[in-house]
Deep mutational scan, measured.
Amino acid sequence: MASQGTKRSYEQMETDGERQNATEIRASVGKMIDGIGRFYIQMCTELKLSDYEGRLIQNSLTIERMVLSAFDERRNKYLEEHPSAGKDPKKTGGPIYKRVDRKWMRELVLYDKEEIRRIWRQANNGDDATAGLTHMMIWHSNLNDTTYQRTRALVRTGMDPRMCSLMQGSTLPRRSGAAGAAVKGVGTMVMELIRMIKRGINDRNFWRGENGRKTRSAYERMCNILKGKFQTAAQRAMMDQVRESRNPGNAEIEDLIFLARSALILRGSVAHKSCLPACVYGPAVASGYDFEKEGYSLVGIDPFKLLQNSQVYSLIRPNENPAHKSQLVWMACNSAAFEDLRVLSFIRGTKVSPRGKLSTRGVQIASNENMDAMESSTLELRSRYWAIRTRSGGNTNQQRASAGQISVQPAFSVQRNLPFDKPTIMAAFTGNTEGRTSDMRAEIIRMMEGAKPEEMSFQGRGVFELSDERAANPIVPSFDMSNEGSYFFGDNAEEYDN
């Protein structure tokens, strides 16, 4: 993207840094990872977990959730003011799984939030270390993106479920800051804005008074975040219109849905970061690795190297396929839920299948599930090659597409044709070009129609051997075009429920 120079890199967003050079960025990201790792080690000690239990991804998720809940100030305040039966607002906890007599047992633990905050700050040299908290939120978000298709949420806001490739980060909490905003897809931002506008339509006082002023500035800020994701002048001009509207209503909703559809071809720039579970960072720190000293990046080879040398386990339900569970977590670790499966298959070195073909449910185990038949197995999170994460949407291309997802959002900077089903997408653009945004709409449609099938995206960008740390010898991959490109292809993934 041309304006790259004016933006802070995501590592800076990730670490609240002012302008830093590459070495400083690597050190501050490393410091953040160190903090998460030290916190995780301490929690495993508190909970008396064995090494194996500490490497269980379900335990990692519970521990991450506990610290996120302990620092969720708004919710904590709300819980104190609106006490609900049987919930102690000062405590947080969740299921911890232990191996007892050759069987997995679930144990519900409860801790004072104050105590968890103390352990977290102690692991982070006394700081609140917001960057580390956001990092864990993005890992949870990436896992949700890989596990669930947001059909219901899309339909509720009037969008087409086939636009799911635009929904990265749709389950990120509001408090995820600049680093969170960077990884949100165009569809996620559109959905947040539509929800806001709908509230304004239904509630006369939404934009009024002292609160209304705050609401208005939040609305304009979200519009600017979305505008910054678009790469064409016409899309940005249309966002200006939406932002400046005196009284946002149905016309703005129409414009936003139009823009979301246009992003299936004229893709937005959305950041991709490899955020790993805390149970990967903990053992690495415990083994003596100093992330701050060595430096770390979320968008280069580092996460690949770390996963190459990590042992992570997962509980497996009786009829689940461990290899499929591994694929789910591998995609989440690489922030690749909406990437082209052919690119992923090449990088991973084994075939990556669409969601609907995987015999696996989510990673988390519900409290009512029976533990008797639970097994555990090693997650295979290694890769054959590594590639640089991208934040450009890439230019655009036609490809055989599917009944489910009709476009992709690249996660890796790797040369390819970008699949999208042009006739299906263009069919949504018939007729409606009147109104105050008509010239911009016409211009956007013209650009979409001009998108050429034979153009290559990320020209000359390749993948790298894991021994090639400096990215000196790019390998331009070859793809098996007979395979499906979309992950949520004609899909039956479970729906995400809060």
Rank of each mutant, 00 (worst) to 15 (best):
G5R: 15
S9W: 04
Y10V: 14
E11W: 11
E14N: 09
T15M: 09
T15L: 15
T15E: 12
R19P: 05
N21W: 01
N21C: 14
N21L: 12
A22S: 14
A22L: 00
V29Y: 01
G30Q: 15
G30C: 10
K31D: 04
M32A: 02
I33A: 14
I33Y: 02
D34P: 00
G35I: 09
I36N: 09
G37Y: 05
R38H: 13
C44M: 08
T45P: 08
E46Y: 02
L47P: 12
D51Q: 13
E53F: 08
G54R: 11
L56G: 08
Q58H: 12
N59G: 14
S60M: 14
S60C: 13
L61D: 13
L61T: 10
L61Y: 12
T62Y: 06
E64F: 05
R65S: 11
M66N: 08
M66V: 11
M66Y: 05
V67N: 14
V67G: 14
S69Q: 07
S69D: 02
A70V: 04
F71V: 09
F71I: 04
D72R: 12
E73Q: 13
R74L: 12
R74T: 04
R74N: 08
R75Y: 09
N76S: 08
H82F: 15
G86T: 11
G86F: 10
K87F: 00
K87Q: 08
K87D: 01
D88P: 00
P89F: 15
P89M: 04
K90D: 01
K90L: 09
G94T: 09
G94N: 10
I96L: 15
Y97W: 06
Y97N: 09
K98I: 06
V100K: 02
K103C: 12
R106E: 09
E107D: 15
L110D: 08
K113P: 07
E114Y: 12
E115W: 06
R118E: 10
A123E: 09
N124T: 04
D128T: 14
T130K: 15
A131W: 02
G132S: 14
T134G: 02
M136Q: 12
I138Q: 04
W139R: 05
S141V: 10
N142C: 09
N142T: 03
T146K: 08
T147H: 11
Q149G: 03
R150W: 12
T151D: 06
R152P: 06
L154W: 05
T157H: 01
G158R: 01
M159G: 03
S165E: 01
S165W: 00
L166S: 10
L166V: 02
M167Q: 08
L172M: 12
L172T: 04
G177V: 10
G180T: 05
A182F: 10
V183S: 09
K184N: 06
V190Q: 05
V190K: 00
M191D: 02
E192R: 10
I194K: 08
K198Q: 13
K198T: 07
N202D: 02
N202C: 08
R204Q: 10
R204K: 08
F206Q: 13
F206P: 03
W207N: 07
R208L: 04
G209S: 12
G212A: 13
R213A: 04
R213C: 02
R213N: 11
K214N: 11
T215S: 15
T215N: 10
T215Y: 01
R216S: 08
R216M: 07
S217H: 03
S217A: 14
Y219V: 04
E220F: 06
E220Q: 13
E220G: 14
R221K: 15
R221F: 08
M222C: 10
M222I: 09
M222D: 02
I225P: 02
G228I: 05
K229I: 09
K229A: 08
Q231K: 14
Q231D: 00
T232H: 15
T232D: 03
Q235L: 13
R236H: 04
R236C: 04
R236N: 06
A237S: 14
M238N: 08
M238L: 15
M239S: 09
D240K: 02
Q241A: 04
Q241P: 02
V242W: 04
V242A: 14
R243T: 07
R243C: 01
E244D: 15
R246P: 11
E252M: 06
I253Q: 14
D255G: 06
L256I: 04
L256F: 08
F258C: 11
L259N: 11
R261D: 09
R261Q: 13
S262D: 06
S262A: 15
A263R: 00
L264N: 04
L264Y: 04
L266I: 15
L266D: 03
R267C: 08
R267W: 07
G268P: 11
S269E: 03
V270Y: 05
V270S: 12
H272E: 09
H272W: 04
S274I: 07
C275N: 12
C275A: 14
L276D: 08
A278H: 04
A278V: 13
C279D: 08
Y281I: 09
P283Q: 14
V285I: 11
A286E: 13
G288F: 12
Y289V: 11
Y296L: 06
Y296R: 04
Y296S: 11
L298K: 08
V299L: 07
V299G: 03
I301G: 07
F304I: 15
F304G: 06
K305E: 06
L307E: 11
Q308Y: 00
Q311H: 07
V312I: 15
V312N: 12
S314D: 04
I316T: 11
R317M: 07
P318L: 12
N319M: 04
E320M: 08
P322M: 11
P322Q: 11
A323Q: 13
H324Q: 14
Q327L: 14
Q327D: 12
L328T: 03
V329L: 13
W330T: 03
C333H: 02
A337V: 12
A337F: 04
F338Q: 15
F338W: 12
F338V: 09
D340M: 09
L341I: 15
K351M: 05
G356E: 10
K357A: 05
K357V: 05
T360V: 15
G362H: 08
Q364N: 05
I365C: 06
A366W: 04
E369I: 06
E369T: 12
A373G: 05
E375H: 12
S376Q: 06
S377G: 07
S377D: 00
T378E: 03
T378H: 04
L381H: 07
L381G: 08
L381W: 04
Y385P: 14
W386F: 12
R389W: 10
R389H: 00
R389V: 01
T390M: 03
R391E: 04
G394C: 01
N395R: 15
Q399F: 13
Q399H: 13
G404I: 03
G404V: 07
S407T: 14
S407L: 09
S407D: 03
V408D: 03
V408K: 03
V408M: 15
Q409Y: 12
Q409P: 00
Q409R: 00
A411S: 15
F412Q: 01
S413V: 05
S413L: 06
V414G: 00
V414S: 01
R416L: 02
R416Y: 01
D421V: 15
P423I: 06
P423L: 01
P423C: 06
M426F: 02
A428C: 15
F429K: 01
F429G: 01
T430K: 10
T430Y: 01
T430I: 01
N432R: 09
T433Y: 12
R436F: 04
D439I: 15
M440N: 06
E443V: 12
A451P: 00
K452D: 00
K452S: 08
K452L: 14
E454Q: 14
E454K: 12
E455I: 14
S457G: 15
Q459L: 05
G460E: 04
G460P: 00
V463T: 07
L466A: 05
S467K: 15
A471D: 03
N473V: 03
N473Q: 15
N473K: 11
V476F: 00
P477W: 01
F479P: 10
F479D: 01
D480A: 11
D480I: 00
M481C: 09
M481Q: 07
S482H: 12
S486L: 12
S486Q: 01
Y487E: 01
Y487D: 04
F488S: 08
F489P: 01
G490E: 11
D491V: 09
Y496N: 09
N498C: 03
